[in-house]
Design a protein around this nucleic acid. Sequence first.
DNA 1: AAGTCCCCCAACCGCATTGGA
DNA 2: CTCCAATGCGGTTGGGGGACT
Length: 399
Amino acid sequence: MGRSPCCEKVGLKKGPWTPEEDKKLMAYIEEFGHGSWRALPSKAGLQRCGKSCRLRWTNYLRPDIKRGKFSLQEEQTIIQLHALLGNRWSAIAAQLPKRTDNEIKNYWNTHLKKRLTRMGIDPTTHKPKTDALGGSGGCQSKDAANLSHMAQWESARLEAEARLVRESRLQVQSNLGPGSNTQPARLVLNKITTQQPSLPPCLDILKAWQSSWSKPQLPTKESNPKMMHSMYAMMLSTEDTLESPTSTLCFPGTTPTMLPVSNNNNIGVLFNENNDMFPLPSTNMDDGGLMKENTVLHLQDDDIMAAVEAFRATTTMYDSNNNNVVPPTLPNGVVLEGLNNDEGLVYESNDNLGAEEENMAMMNGDGSLCNVNLEENNKHYWNNIFNLVNDPLSGPSVF
DNA sequence: AAGTCCCCCAACCGCATTGGA
DNA sequence: CTCCAATGCGGTTGGGGGACT
């Protein structure tokens, strides 16, 4: 409740820590553990408040802290998670082993935020700034269009988050019914470091997110009929008025294509043969996150169409009566990066894929990841951004 | 070389949350 | 159920130091 009295106590030192103070703090914690932070300073012979000691330990002295420059992958992870989680630095830090929330926060504020701003992307909303994409006339590049699309999706992620939490509550309850001692695997759409076998408890959003996925069940009527669905399906459902960005990515194809889709339940992130990742845009979802029958997707690229077919072909599907639907075969030439619980697989169009196949990026019920090369899957998606970020000649000149 | 500016990041501040009494 | 100490967390500050003039 109330704020605890702390450093306003007279006689306590503030400001930078000296090496002697660091030694005392480390020696004490190594021998006794930190115990009560409030009691620690006097026991350790420090003229500091407990809070200051805790901060010094957690942000600097802890032995498992990695210091120094952030890697490109770390940067990517931060941006992705920030798009999803916002300024929840502790949650973001939980996905970056050995980095502290304070360090990530500083890095965001001093580096990444500025880069996104330079690119014409609002670092708060991850949307393109209106004047950034509008006024430059004919010099609009594909990159700019891509960025616009990406930013729309990042924004949609944020908006979807609230829904994820809401839905996850319901699903957690239903998943934890009596006798269900095996948690379902969950679809993973975001890059999660593979060094981290389980999500830490503080990452409430991702936990909720995980909980919102249910593994594609074997096609028995007794199985949990809950559909596997995706973040995108949820965010595109008609329950809310989320804007549905449609195919503004610059795909190679130019002829608009109409793809009829029956009432399959799956919408999600798709990968083409180049590992390009893109969301499947759609409308007309029902309240359960399922696509309505006879929905027509307006797509502009053969790759999308092929990926949709591939996605359908490699995912267990149910119709509105929870009957398993035999998936179609993959069209010729389609390659989809599919993943199962054993190892990453690349399904090709002439593979005979059964409905029982477990594929796509999966997370086991205990939180451990399947052997998923999500980094690779995300690569092209983010490369567009980071190429611009890292190229000093782009950025403002693009916009 | 000296002064100024600006960036970075460790540390602080204060509200929010947790959990025990 | 309430209270409150302890802790968590995110926003902000300010000093050190490098870059620039």
